[in-house]
Design a protein around this nucleic acid. Sequence first.
DNA 1: CGAAACGTTGACCGTTTTCAATTACAGTGG
DNA 2: CCACTGTAATTGAAAACGGTCAACGTTTCG
Lengths: 194, 194
Amino acid sequence: MEKFTLPPPFDRLPASELRHVSFPESRLVFQQGATPYELFFVTEGAVILERHTEAGQKVVLHRATAGDLIAEASLFSDSYHCDCMAQANTGLATLNKSAVLKRMAEDTTFAMLLLKRLARQVQRYRRQLELRSVFPASDRVMAGILDGWLNGTVLAFANDLGLSHEATYRALATLVAQGRLHKVGRGKYVVPPP
Amino acid sequence: MEKFTLPPPFDRLPASELRHVSFPESRLVFQQGATPYELFFVTEGAVILERHTEAGQKVVLHRATAGDLIAEASLFSDSYHCDCMAQANTGLATLNKSAVLKRMAEDTTFAMLLLKRLARQVQRYRRQLELRSVFPASDRVMAGILDGWLNGTVLAFANDLGLSHEATYRALATLVAQGRLHKVGRGKYVVPPP
DNA sequence: CGAAACGTTGACCGTTTTCAATTACAGTGG
DNA sequence: CCACTGTAATTGAAAACGGTCAACGTTTCG
């Protein structure tokens, strides 16, 4: 976590605004209802965001892993709307909320880049949701590949698609058998030319 | 479509920047690669956003219906990255891209509100994706209700969850039978007190 | 009143999940 | 350089699950 650099546009903020913190498993990072003073980047491990309902039950809203930004919405809110708990030994980089707000107001470019980041993220989520409504699995896998989701491991790919990795492997095998994909190595597949 | 009002923060833009257009089914709204001059709101009907891959295949990236904003990402891009086609008779409200960019640069509040909108949207999508990885269906339905997704019709709810409405009804019935939910009317369910 | 849309339930059947086991690498320490 | 260990890649089989088709009751709205 020494050489950690923030994703744009946060890399434009002075390092003095940045703080690194570590949390052991199950440690609460922030609590629902608390006043938000910071945003967080997950640099290592993972955190779970969960909300407590009136009836006393819990719902997991999101699981964020290394590279993810969390609590952006708290920029516009006076309280955290969920709990955040470290799921494992987790490293977080924290940014002062008011410093970010100030910078957004003063630096139009900064605000614009932040907007861009969020717009892209929205786009990505929409595509992912669209993918998950594709059936059956082999079509979803094909669509996922055509849309460039298979860059890392098949495991991660399967996770993005919302399929078990076994189902994903089977779908891949089927597609290869049908000639809709070519296998070019362990876990590597390409779309054959028309 | 006469009384259509834009969602915030676009309702702050002068009506003169707004234009209404109608598209018949299958009509191309914009094309991949073209230079973007406008953003669109779907006021009626639906549009399909799809991308053409190098290998000549098509992938649906998103389907947008009434109330949705599309092509926000084109604010930061010099070309549309996908085709947009009317899926049925569709009404669109168009906003001039440069006018919006100009306003963002000049009016910090406007930019801030836009940021807020996107941040909320990101949050919502993340929760929705999280929901869709919950299995089996009854747990997903329960989680969806706890997270407040069942406000409109069960049909819409089922759609948000990525389940067929039949599966959703069955899950609801199961949950009621298990006492995890109480039915308080046609299509109305509440979480029982602990 | 009739059409249209939502709500609800049953049965059937194909798909996926789950559980289990095997193979293939990559990194680590001896 | 090799055994050793952990993770990713694969494949098989059985059981569970959800999609689809079908039918019907109910509410809404022109």
